[in-house]
């Protein structure tokens, strides 16, 4: 009974692994098991955990039947699997710098695993030592091969690195630079630490974060409006009315670049490099104070501090086109529409 379950698990796991592998190598469409936007971070972790489980199960089953895979190949192949997974499975592609970081750590992890006890470590070292000792003709041939191949490989790398590259240089761009302590817009000075959005108000017109937080759209894929919280209702008052006004400003000025879904994929977005900020990403406005947005919107790409070199932003200084009130309202709209809450410190 127990072995039956194990075998069933092994077969299902094997199929799963095969699918992941085919998707990773591009032989079938990577869309076969879709990565769902918004749930991707957890999905990736769960997939990897499942793969590790399957690997453990399969190697156990093989070992039970006398077909144990040598430790050396277990370790190496697992690392290669991770390499393929990170390179081809995850879409959009992960930049090289992060992949290198991940793979380096994975290599350490593999080392920690294979050397976790003396016996495994001996097993792991054995093939390497065999080649070095070259006691059999095969190993001798292999050693000779490595003696030539490794320097050749190194030569290849060096040659490659000396070739002139047409790539643009890497930019260490700071996406969210530290804001100044204060900013002056239309003759008024705002202290970024303490300033508040004058339109984030309850029905009595008092500043109320909690009240307005309850009225934003629901987080998640649908972005559904709350019942009785429709800014386009002609009777909408206070906060919701300001959201509507902010929306009007947004669709007259901002959506050409930032997109009608606020995801940075507007009409003109792909003319720019980098493309405009994606507000629906949890790493952008959800991490920032409202006053940070106020400063960025009013000063635009030109007003970025030195830290943001090379100031790769084409955003205009909106203070030249919008009033202070309009800027505050459009910020209100952005948070409302994305379902994020601005960062606060109390």
């Amino acid at each position: 009974m127990k072995s039956l379950i194990l075998w069933a698990g092994g077969i299902i796991g094997g199929i799963f692994l095969a699918v992941i592998f085919l998707m990773s190598s591009g032989l079938v469409s990577p869309q076969m098991i879709q990565l769902v936007p918004g749930y991707m971070p957890m999905q990736v972790l769960i997939e990897l955990t499942a793969c590790v489980g399957v690997f453990a199960l399969l190697s156990y089953l093989l070992a039970q039947n006398g077909l144990a895979i040598p430790k050396f190949w277990q370790g190496t192949l697992f690392w290669v699997f991770l390499l393929l997974y990170l390179k081809f499975r995850i879409y959009p592609p992960i930049p090289y710098s992060v992949r290198a970081l991940y793979l380096a750590v994975s290599a350490v992890a593999v080392f920690m695993w294979v050397s976790s006890n003396e016996e495994d470590w001996k097993q792991f070292k054995q093939p390497i030592l065999n080649v070095l000792d070259a006691m059999t003709p095969f190993h001798k041939a292999l050693r000779t091969f490595y003696l030539i191949a490794i320097p050749a490989l190194l030569w290849g790398f060096s040659y490659q690195s000396f070739l002139p590259s047409l790539e643009e240089p890497i930019e260490l761009r700071t996406v969210h630079p530290a804001p100044p302590a204060t900013t002056k817009v239309h003759g008024r000075t705002f202290v970024l630490q303490t300033a508040q959005n004058p339109y984030r108000v309850d029905l009595e017109g008092k500043y109320d974060q909690g009240f307005t937080d309850d009225l934003i759209v629901e987080q998640g894929m649908g972005r559904l409006m709350k019942p009785d919280a429709n800014p386009w209702d002609p009777d909408a008052k206070g906060y919701l009315k300001h959201v509507r006004e902010g929306g009007e400003v947004f669709f007259q000025n901002c959506h050409f670049c930032h997109g009608d879904n606020l995801n940075g994929r507007g009409l003109h977005a792909f003319a720019f490099n980098p493309i405009p900020a994606n507000f629906t990403d949890s790493g952008t406005i959800a991490q920032l104070q409202e006053t940070f947005l106020f400063w960025r919107v009013s000063k635009g790409g030109i007003g970025l501090p030195r830290e943001s070199f090379p100031w790769a932003s084409t955003m205009p200084r909106w203070e030249e086109h919008l009033t202070t009130d309009e800027i505050w309202k459009v910020i209100l709209f952005e948070y409302w529409h994305t379902g994020f809450y601005p960062r606060t410190w109390d």
Partner: peptide, 29 residues
């Protein structure tokens, strides 16, 4: 250790379609 601000070439930036990556962006915070 996932960085929030990622080092990448402009080509990679284009391929990713923006500064934020849907997986890395979430790990970066």
């Amino acid at each position: 250790i996932t960085p929030h601000t990622i080092v990448m070439t402009p080509t990679e930036l284009k391929a990713m379609g923006g500064q934020q990556h849907p997986v890395l962006g979430a790990y970066g915070v």
